[in-house]
Design a protein around this nucleic acid. Structure first.
Length: 494
RNA sequence: GCCCCCAUCGUCUAGUGGCCCAGGACGAAGCCCUCUCAAGGCUUAAACAGGGGUUCGAGUCCCCUUGGGGGCACCA
């Protein structure tokens, strides 16, 4: 059926933040489009006025842009099938709904919400499945038309076959057979004139010539309906691909609002908008979400290009996947490590600037190689390397004293190291390391004691990038200054 | 309650009837390297949910049970 050029779409509703589940749906759409040379479309499904969140559309667009998932048609860039916002297509849905009425595949329903609520209560009480009882289903079409003309409030319902079965085909699961008796006469057009998803999405997918529908498996339960609607119109069906859902890290259920908020405390998030601030890079996030619900044989650290190359809809998996933030860390770190020096420098510079550190670009370029393999998230650059750019460091006095030594011995080491480094032509490791190692030898202290002290003295911290390389970047003046200061502190303690 | 979907190491997964005493990755443990922290290298522990079939042969096909998930709206 897919001799048509591939056209796929990501169709979120602007009702909240763009989360990783949505991002992954967008990713798979994107990968498939790029893989096949087809088009990737962004469509905004904003027909629910009650849940509409102002700004949500913008957040979706920004999120996709940040991730690098460029679309070919969309509300902000237009395209041959515009508009791409459903509230701007209301007339189309209204006409299509009535087209179905004319084909006797749908009917106007005048039942009030109150009556439906009562009906539902009663069915629940009798432990029956809650569904429409079909009161308006067999109304005379002329009578119905007259009532509509008179301005009575109505919805349009789909006339679901009462008997037989509906066979729908999901690409990952095969045929899904549902007995029609369990299906309902779903509302297609609401009384406010807005369509429901069931109508709008089917109409748009058809009009926009969508060939493959990637969507969350929460749509599986209404899948038979959608297939029925498409068939009632006599349209060609797209290939349906229902993606697995994301479960919380424990694997028990989906993440709640509260749980989502709490992950932020641990430095993680399921919302794309938070990722940048948490120091994650698009490459890492993309790689992470791509591997939930997609089985790649080997070498799973991939760039977008690599993903496009390897993407196959047949290797998508239907089972739910638990979110694992440790993997986010892993992929983020792996991709940071792959960044060029210039690129990484550009990305971490803002973090230093935000902390009022004067960043010299040449110096930054020398810092990056020392930091690169130590960063899990971009903001780790501060914990690891703020001392490179700060005027002074504030070592904790007790940390200056190596294990097993007295303050006096420590002071002696600091003074001696100062003297050795002062005598050396520059701070390059070839000049600093040999004499200091020689000193370790003759002094009888061990490397950890001596280098540890120097590390705390010049970096202000116990953990840092390699000492000698770091000193070379810090520069002679600051190194000596900091060593002197450490010596002073230690002397005052002894 | 009813309907639908899913089911391999803790997690993400490979596996499409014999190549599997089940492979990779994350995480864990240990060793090596080492100026700290990382990175890197090597090694180890760790799974076919249970029960019935089908078959010469089942992780792979069928059924049941169990577990998990989703849905039962004039929300998407």
């Amino acid at each position: 059926m897919t001799d048509r050029p591939v056209r796929v779409r990501f169709a979120p509703s602007p009702t909240g933040h763009l989360h990783i589940g949505g991002a992954r749906t967008a990713l798979f759409n994107y990968l498939f489009a790029r893989k096949t040379g087809g088009q990737f479309i962004l469509r905004i499904e904003d027909t629910d006025r009650k849940r509409f969140v102002p700004g949500a559309e913008q957040e979706i667009i920004e999120g996709l842009r940040w991730l690098g998932l460029e679309y070919d048609e969309g509300p902000d860039i237009g395209g041959p099938y515009r508009p791409y916002r459903q509230t701007e297509r209301l007339e189309i849905y209204r006409q299509r709904a009535w087209e179905l009425v004319e084909r006797s595949a749908a009917y106007p329903c005048f039942c009030t919400p109150e009556r439906l609520e009562k009906l539902r209560q009663e069915q629940m009480r009798n432990k029956q499945q809650a569904r429409y009882d079909g009161l308006c289903r067999d109304l005379d079409p002329d009578v119905a038309a007259r009532r509509v003309a008179q301005g009575e409030r109505y919805v349009i319902r789909f006339k679901m076959p009462r008997h037989g079965v509906t066979i729908a085909r999901d690409h990952l699961r095969g045929e899904i057979v549902t007995e029609n008796q369990y299906l309902d006469d779903y509302v297609l057009l609401k009384s406010d004139g807005f369509p429901t998803y069931h109508l709008a999405a089917m109409v748009d997918d058809h009009e926009m010539k969508i060939t493959h529908v990637f969507r969350g498996s929460e749509w599986l339960s209404t899948f038979p309906l959608h297939v029925q609607v498409v068939r009632a119109f006599g349209w060609e069906e797209p290939v349906w691909i229902h993606l697995s859902v994301f479960l919380k890290p424990s694997g028990k259920g989906k993440m709640s609002k509260r749980e989502s908020a709490e992950t932020l405390k641990d430095g993680y998030s399921i919302f794309v908008k938070d990722m940048k601030e948490l120091g994650f890079i698009p490459e890492g996030v993309l790689n992470w979400i791509s591997l939930m619900g997609w089985g790649v044989p080997e070498d799973d650290v991939m760039t977008l290009e690599k993903m496009i190359e390897r993407f196959e809809i047949d290797s998508l998996t239907p089972s739910p996947a638990a979110i694992n933030f440790q993997k986010l860390d892993h992929f983020n770190r792996a991709h940071i490590r792959r960044l060029s020096t210039e690129d990484l420098a550009r990305r971490i510079k803002p973090y230093f600037l935000a902390h009022n550190l004067a960043v010299d670009d040449d110096q930054l370029l020398r810092v990056v190689p020392l930091l690169r393999e130590r960063l899990v998230t971009l903001d780790d650059c501060l914990a690891f390397g703020a001392f490179f750019f700060s005027e002074t460091v504030e070592p904790a006095p007790e940390e200056l004293i190596p294990k097993g030594l007295s303050a006096q011995q420590a002071a002696q080491i600091a003074r001696r190291v100062y003297a050795i480094l002062e005598a050396v032509p520059d701070m390059e490791p070839v000049h600093t390391e040999p004499p200091l190692r020689a000193y370790v030898e003759e002094s009888g202290f061990n490397v950890n004691q001596v280098f540890g002290l120097v590390r705390v003295a010049v970096t202000g911290q116990r953990v840092s990038p390699p000492l000698f390389e770091s000193m070379a970047v810090i520069g002679r003046e600051k190194v000596l200054e900091r060593l002197k200061r450490a010596g002073d502190i230690l002397e005052s303690m002894s």
